[in-house]
């Protein structure tokens, strides 16, 4: 299955960055909560929140310096792999921002993260299926 790498613009994740929810509300990136994503998807029409479980974390074979994250996505349990820098934050349900290297995330973005681990359920989005 196809997978799009998360946004390449790191300023999204800089502490203090202003994020607009689908409801129009503005929040700082460090203040976002699980419900903000869920509610945004509900009102956005066309986007659906999926739970993506981290199945494996290892160094990328193809791209040194990156980390390969293996997910199973949604009800279909699709297997998706993406390569990201170790400092890239993911939003874990009920926990908040998490990365493979919270120290680097703090250095580069100023964003406080938990350590991303196998079994974590990350927020991801897909296109809403038309019934």
């Amino acid at each position: 299955p196809a997978a799009a790498a998360p946004g390449s613009n790191p300023s999204h994740f800089m502490k203090g960055a202003i994020i607009q929810l689908a409801t129009g509300e503005l929040k700082r990136v460090e203040d976002l909560q699980t419900q903000d994503f869920v509610r945004s998807a509900e009102v956005s029409g066309g986007l659906k929140i999926d739970s993506s479980m981290v199945m494996d974390i290892r160094s990328s074979q193809q791209r040194p310096g990156l980390v390969s994250l293996h997910f199973t996505v949604g009800e279909q349990q699709s297997k998706v792999t993406i390569d990201v820098p170790p400092e890239h934050p993911f939003f874990v349900f009920g926990q908040g921002w998490s990365s493979c290297s919270p120290e680097r995330t703090a250095q580069l973005y100023g964003l406080t993260c938990h350590l991303l681990q196998v079994g974590d359920m990350c927020v991801s989005i897909t296109l809403q299926q038309q019934q």
Binding site: P1, A2, A3, A4, A5, P6, G7, N9, S11, H12, F13, A17, I18, I19, Q20, L21, A22, L26, V29, L32, D36, F37, S40, S44, L47, D50, S52, F71, T72, V73, G74, E75, Q76, Q77, S78, K79, V80, I82, F90, F91, C122, V123, S124, I125, T126, L127, Q129
Partner: peptide
């Protein structure tokens, strides 16, 4: 005079990965 600088605003969906779950793996 200091011109006001616009603060960038990012959409919520730019923060989370788009992972295609339409095809079972």
């Amino acid at each position: 005079n200091v011109e006001p600088r616009s603060v960038p605003v990012f959409p919520w969906h730019s923060l989370v990965p788009f992972l295609d779950s339409s095809q079972p793996g």
